[in-house]
């Protein structure tokens, strides 16, 4: 239904008031079963959860009003994350602690809000993301040796899909391996990759590794730990 005539937000006075409302940033984690839910489906899930929780979210004013909502750095299907950021505009002031509680009650159990705050920095400031990448395998020593060999090449060329087709790209300078840990089910690498406008997902590296070195990896588990801005500070 076209709600434009009935949108309670849709008065001149209200619009002026809401224009003065700052954007709110919701940090949440998405783990467990939820990693198999695509970004588009998460968007719908968030809308319904906000509605269930009764959060006064501002709706866009077009012919087909919808909740105003943006995601700072959409997460790929299959990734888990502890630091997802969703920006909203509210129509009235709310207590962030209470909003967090209400929202957590309304969300599916694998999506948990950790923090709500006013938006400090634009998503355009995002430059890097920190990931834990676990290569699930039996022959850990050998896989680690091959992986170290693989990432120490002078260049690592992946064929990246773009809107205009495919083009080769050297991701060597875009990935920084920070730590390596042997864990129960395999090897866990902590890595920082380029993120934001130019985005390098860790699977670009690991998929190529599996393909080129022909190694037997059962699964690649990826957890996004942190997002950084171009000045090196944590994105908030």
């Amino acid at each position: 239904m076209s709600n434009q005539n009935f949108n309670p937000n849709n008065t001149a006075e209200n619009n002026r008031k809401i224009a003065l409302m700052p954007n709110v940033r919701v940090f949440y984690s998405k783990t467990g079963r939820a990693k198999y839910i695509s970004h588009l489906d998460i968007t719908r899930c968030m809308q319904r959860s906000l509605k269930r929780a009764g959060i006064p979210v501002w709706y866009t004013q077009g012919f087909n009003p919808h909740m105003y909502m943006t995601f700072a750095l959409p997460l790929a299907l299959g990734y888990e994350s502890e630091c997802e950021a969703m920006d909203l505009r509210l129509t009235e002031k709310v207590d962030f602690e209470k909003m967090k509680e209400d929202l957590n009650r309304a969300l599916p159990k694998d999506i948990v809000v950790n923090k709500i705050m006013l938006q400090n920095n634009k998503p355009q400031t995002i430059a890097k993301a920190l990931y834990e990448v676990t290569l699930v395998c039996d022959d850990k020593e050998n896989v680690a040796k091959l992986f170290d060999e693989f990432v120490s090449q002078d260049e690592i060329i992946v064929i990246k899909k773009t809107k205009k087709g495919t083009k080769p790209m050297d991701i060597k300078p875009e990935v920084e391996i920070i730590a390596k840990d042997f864990v129960e089910n395999g090897i866990k690498y902590t890595m920082k990759t380029t993120a934001g406008q130019k985005n390098v997902n860790p699977t670009l590296l690991t998929d190529l590794f599996v393909e080129k070195m022909n190694v037997d990896i059962k699964a690649t588990l990826i957890l996004r730990k942190q997002i950084y801005m171009d000045n090196g500070e944590i994105f908030e």
Partner: peptide, 23 residues
């Protein structure tokens, strides 16, 4: 669950097979 992690990303619409929905 662990076994599913090994191949669920290779099938169409993995969300069909994991449950965890609200309610």
């Amino acid at each position: 669950k662990k076994q599913l992690d090994e191949f669920l990303l290779e099938v169409q619409k993995p969300g069909r097979y994991v449950g965890g929905e609200v309610n």
